[in-house]
């Protein structure tokens, strides 16, 4: 199973939202990292065929998705960034509605709904109205909707936004459990969401994929660029030319965790983590 993006481009007027993205996606969890406005959502929307690319093509197992049409959508599960569901529907009722939209037979829909409600721990909320669910439950229901048709391609656009740490951890485990035999793309700018579970990381900046590989490979590239040192407080200003990942200010001295392409004298080299990787690529003051 393969999903190939070939020179995928989307232009809105003069703004190039996605710029000639070419890559191949295979089963496993691919994390799409990027700052806000980097083009992640636009790229994902093209992959799920709700916006048409200005140019370029997407091939699913060698076939152009434009030709596959509904057949392609049968294999897609999408959880949008701003997830909306009918607030007056009950949980189970809404899942049946979505199952109908996804073209599932009623008997199969029942099996899937029971299974997924158990999986996302919403069995007790089955007959509750959606508007009564908490933020975490709402997102979990979103995942259930996404997985109803047992999709081969799962696209999750910032699914953990607004969740508390515990819900975030639960969500992370849930996503990890479904990513074995599916192509899962998880878009986020929260690095902790994908640490330890991502099989590949794709970093997107200004509409382009600037990096796409296994986490250990990307982290290896970061080796020799992450430093730690402690300096007198009045000397911190000399290190502000570097990307400061973390600083801990003491009474007389400050601990600095820095990113730098050049060697920093007197500093200790640290083992890079994904947070360092992210900040290294988005060090130019972009919002995140």
């Amino acid at each position: 199973m393969e999903l190939n993006l070939n020179k995928l481009t989307k232009q809105y007027g003069s703004k190039l939202a996605v710029d000639r993205v070419t890559l191949t996606l295979q089963p496993g969890l691919t994390a799409l990292l990027g700052a806000n406005g980097s083009g992640k959502t636009t790229l994902l929307r093209m992959i799920v065929d709700i916006i048409k690319p200005t140019s370029g093509e997407i091939f699913y197992d060698g076939k152009n998705i434009m030709k596959l049409k509904e057949q392609y959508l049968c294999d897609i599960g999408y959880m949008p960034q701003h997830l909306g569901m009918y607030p007056n529907f009950k949980v189970e009722e809404f899942l049946y509605y979505m199952a109908t939209l996804k073209g599932l037979k009623k008997s199969y829909a029942k099996i899937q709904i029971d299974k997924l409600l158990h999986k996302v721990n919403l069995e007790e909320k089955r007959h509750h109205k959606i508007k009564t669910l908490s933020g975490g439950m709402y997102q979990r229901l979103g995942i259930a909707v996404c997985l109803l048709n047992d999709p081969k391609i799962v696209i999750l656009d910032e699914p953990t936004a607004g969740l508390d740490p515990k819900e975030r951890m639960n969500f992370k485990n849930l996503i990890s459990s479904i990513s074995q035999d599916k192509i899962v793309i998880l878009s986020t700018h929260i690095v902790s969401d994908i640490s330890e579970i991502a099989d590949r990381i794709m970093i997107m900046k200004d509409g382009s994929i600037i990096s796409y590989d296994r986490p250990e490979v990307l982290l290896k590239e970061m080796e020799g660029k992450v430093y730690a040192l402690t300096v007198p407080n009045d000397n911190v200003v000399n290190y502000e030319k570097y990307t400061i990942v973390n600083r801990k200010v003491g009474r007389e001295e400050t601990y600095l965790h820095l990113l730098s392409d050049e060697k920093i004298e007197g500093a200790t080299l640290l083992t890079p983590d994904l947070n360092d990787l992210y900040l290294y690529h988005f060090k130019d003051g972009e919002e995140f």
């Binding site: 929307r45 799920v48 065929d49 709700i50 509904e70 959508l73 049968c74 897609i76 999408y78 949008p80 701003h82 997830l83 909306g84 569901m85 009918y86 607030p87 979505m98 109908t100 939209l101 996804k102 073209g103 909707v145 048709n149």
Partner: peptide, 14 residues
Amino acid sequence: DKMMSLIKTSKNGK
């Protein structure tokens, strides 16, 4: 209701 994305990515939604 911000449901359009879910609908348009479903087989019968379009």
